[in-house]
């Protein structure tokens, strides 16, 4: 059974088709990278996996460990173990980071029929995961993402991922906006969480990230479809040659 299996996915927004028959299968323990030109539908795919209702699924299915995600609300997907690190993390004034994280953990626990986390255990977890991604502890006292720098926002996404320990994590351009050191730290964070039971879908424009988070498979998404799949060497080839050569082959 696959961790994630996407079958012939067609999706549109405001009547405009974005995904046009996308297929993708990811096994437990694997890291897949998705690359592709701007506007090709990468974030759309990520949003659909997480359950954004703005997109209309017109055909196909998204299976997570054999069950269709399309019947689940976003919070149910999170409880099942799906996580999305947003390309553009949302600022939420007035909701403190700590209140937010605690609500998230407790709501997920409640959905699994578990008691709320104890205050001391929560704090311990926060400290441990802050250390993992070297997130400034002061940020925890602020409102969610409010006034965070671009890099801090991305680090905060990885911090949240570490807190929630998902089975399937989709990282949407988590590397963009990070400086060299931050990139290494974030990648180390991801690598520390990698194991044979979980999977990662890493969306990126840069091969550099894939030097740190080494993928098992690299896909190219263009025009709403996966048009090429290869090993990590494909990323190097894309870096050197751009997308045109595959787009041409695709059309041929």
């Amino acid at each position: 059974m696959y961790m994630l299996e996407i079958r012939n996915l067609h999706a549109s927004i405001d009547g405009k088709p974005i995904l046009k028959g996308l297929n993708l299968s990811v096994k437990a323990g694997e890291v897949h990278a998705i690359m592709g030109p701007n506007g090709s539908g990468k974030s759309t795919l990520a949003s659909i996996i997480a359950g954004n209702e703005a997109y209309e699924i017109t055909e196909g299915d998204v299976l997570f460990q054999g069950i269709s995600l399309l019947d689940l609300q976003p919070h149910e997907r999170a409880a099942a173990g799906v996580f999305l690190a947003f390309q553009y993390p949302v600022e939420i004034p007035g909701v403190s980071m700590m209140n937010f994280m605690k609500s998230a953990i407790n709501e997920i626990r409640a959905q699994k029929g578990q008691e709320p986390i104890e205050a001391s255990a929560f704090l311990k977890l926060v400290r441990e995961k802050q250390a993992l991604v070297e997130l400034d502890a002061k940020l925890a006292n602020r409102s969610v993402n409010q006034g965070f720098s671009g890099g801090e926002k991305k680090r905060n996404e990885v911090f949240q991922m570490a807190m929630l320990d998902p089975k399937l994590a989709v990282l949407d351009e988590t590397d963009s906006g990070l400086d060299i050191d931050a990139l290494r730290i974030v990648a180390q964070g991801v690598n520390a969480l990698r194991n044979s039971q979980n999977s990662f879908l890493v969306i990126t424009h840069y091969q550099r990230l894939l030097d740190y988070i080494v993928p098992d498979v690299v896909h190219v998404l263009a025009n709403g479809k996966i048009i090429k799949t290869g090993s990590k060497d494909l990323a190097l080839e894309l870096e050197a040659k751009g997308y045109d050569w595959i787009l041409e082959t695709d059309q041929a």
Partner: peptide, 27 residues
Amino acid sequence: LDEQALFYLQARGISKPAARRLLIEAF
């Protein structure tokens, strides 16, 4: 209510009613 903020909270496991409540309390 900010739809994007609602989705962000939901994507972290918070149900829609609870997410609405968090945003309203923040307001």
